[in-house]
Nucleic acid binder design. Structure first.
Lengths: 358, 358
DNA sequence: ACCTTCAGCTAAACCGGTTTGCTAAACGGG
DNA sequence: CCCGTTTAGCAAACCGGTTTAGCTGAAGGT
């Protein structure tokens, strides 16, 4: 009776080939330290037994995993629904694959990101959208593994990649203002952790840009005209409906994500409103599908894939020179406004009622 | 001079707390085997030292990684550009997160999927689009870890989740035929490995469905009217352009992926053709954005997220009862045609020239 | 003939944890 | 007060590899 048909171990190969474990290890990792025919024979025996070195054991001894993590404060099951994240992952994957690293996605485990980090066997992580006031941010930082922050509150000690959020938002705002719009609804992405006001997150930076733009024409966007929700089609849809229920009748919507802008357009259409005839909609991200939606979306372009790529390259430079205390590098990528067909001038009948009231 | 500020090990905590390694381990894993105050003290010392059990070492001893892999024969950097994959991953992530498993994406490493599998520390994998004639399929199978096949050639020994490809395609074909179309272009997804004809892959199954549908009206779709490429917007765009350059002038395009259908629509628009006035376009997948593109896409709906979820649940039932030789379960999910606005009757001026020639 | 060198291989230590088997002290019942 | 049981904690083995230090025998040099 077979004891159990287990996966063969290195010792099994060694016994079968009549050599030591060391020799088997050499046959795989440094064949030059063995007589050529011995190496060949060992590999034949291994092949015959179906032996593959156990990756976990190998990781343990080599003290590296050849894997990088993508850390998100949101559940993967929600963030994957945003095409932005797909494109970002594409960039990450591109660089990781090129450099021979595997990819591990890390999201909160039973509500705790730190716990998920603890389980993850990675050499470094790219954190996306990790805000400064995340309750576990300290634990995560001190995990002792290299981190690159993307779209997060930048910190001197970690590398970071971000975009010119304020600039992009300002460009969008100025453009919309120049079309004559004065009654604006801003749709923002919900801070990952429902914690505090996230003083310097992506949402705040973009909001600042919008506000700066309107300030130049003497308009302030009141807080009640800024509504946040999950960065998805449904999120944008729900917010727009809520705004209309609240009695808001903006002539333009500035959304901080294309997915949300698309949701907003859906809601507007359901309200029998024309885009851009009745309402102008401007997104943010410029996802692949932005030119293909109905109507083609005016939006702020950002180099999403490149953001992923650069983050990985930055990360791997610090991963690969373990020890040397690298000075953290900070990169900022540019944004630019892309005007398509979802934006237009203020509708005639609204021109008088808007503007500064008194 | 500090020897090196390393990550603390269990022995450091043990020494500092004046107990054995065993006690430290117990403090974390089975506190009930220790006096309460001892457990607390040990955890305090650990916290103070910033100790976290090393995940790799833990995996080694527990013989499980609490991670599942998503295996794709394509590079992640290409497959992530298809929204279908995003939605699928969403389903996978949903089930994995719920059950406390992490997610690892496995794609070919330096061209070899088997090598990538070898590196990956996972308890099981969900393989998507792994065709039977993939050169490394045997090695992957014999890796000795549980596999569930999705959209792949099903095999009795592994669990599988698939959809009614032929049925969905047939429905699309019948609908298009009923609109009077007789001159069809089929846009298919390229088999992952450029190997052979992939006799029973997704592409073949869907093609069979299309052909069955047209057979009922006495039309055969010639091989020159079936063109394949990467499942992306660019893929669909390129194929459509190539078809027009080849002199093809179909009145309807059946695409096996929404992304490709969207690319096809872009190409048609660039050719100054109206959709559906001049050409009808039908997709496959029904991605989230399908209703939002211009024009809203007629397509075959499949439960993408559920496919991911079910695959993971299937996988974990076999992962969790290691040992018992489970009988592999095979699930097939339904598809249905969703008619939107990208499809319509054959244009008048084409009605006479089409039909069965002689 | 003797020493050195080198090729080819091995035993043992190690990576950082968990688990098993055992011991010593405290407990408790009669 | 004695003996069986429990409690608290420890040493050592183990998971499955890699790596270091060292051994052996044959070739090469003089």
């Amino acid at each position: 009776m077979e004891p159990r048909t287990q996966r063969p171990r290195i010792a099994d190969v060694a016994r079968e080939a009549g050599v030591s474990k060391t020799a088997v290890s050499f046959a795989f990792n440094s064949p030059d330290r063995l007589a050529p025919e011995t190496a060949v024979r060992i590999r034949e025996v291994a092949e015959h037994l179906g032996y593959r070195p156990h990756p976990v054991a190998r990781m343990l001894t080599q003290r590296q995993t050849m894997t990088i993590g993508v850390l998100t404060p949101q559940a993967l099951s929600v963030i994957f629904s945003n095409p932005f994240f797909g494109a970002f992952s594409e960039g990450v994957a591109l660089a990781a694959e090129e450099l021979g690293y595997g990819l591990h996605f890390i999201s909160p485990l039973h509500g705790s990101l730190a716990r998920a980090m603890g389980r993850a066997t990675v050499d470094g992580v790219v954190a996306i959208g990790l805000s400064d006031n995340h309750p576990e941010v300290e634990q995560i930082r001190r995990a002792g593994i290299p981190i690159v922050l993307v779209d997060s509150t930048a910190l001197p000690e970690h590398g970071s990649v971000e975009i010119d959020d304020a600039g992009g938002a300002r460009a969008a705002g100025e453009y919309v203002a120049s079309l004559g719009h004065r009654d604006i609804l801003v749709i923002g992405v919900e801070p990952p952790a429902p914690g505090g006001p996230e003083p310097d997150g992506v949402t705040s930076r973009r909001l600042r840009g919008y506000r700066e733009a309107f300030a130049t024409v003497g308009v302030t966007i009141p807080d009640e005209h800024v509504m946040v929700g999950p960065a998805s089609i449904e999120g944008g849809l729900a917010i727009t409906n809520r705004a209309w229920e609240d009695g808001l009748r903006p002539t333009a919507i500035l959304a901080m994500s294309d997915a949300m802008a698309i949701g907003a357009m859906r809601a507007l259409r359901d309200l029998r409103l024309d885009i851009p005839g009745d309402v102008t909609v401007v997104g943010f991200d410029d996802i692949d599908l932005a030119p293909h939606v109905d109507p083609p979306l005016t939006t702020v372009h950002q180099p999403i894939r490149r953001k992923g790529e650069e983050a990985v390259r930055l990360l791997l430079t610090v991963v690969e020179r373990r020890g040397q205390p690298t000075t953290a590098e900070h990169r900022r990528l540019e944004t630019r406004l892309i005007v398509r067909s979802s934006s237009g001038p203020v509708p005639r009948h609204r021109e008088e009622v808007t503007g500064q009231p008194d």
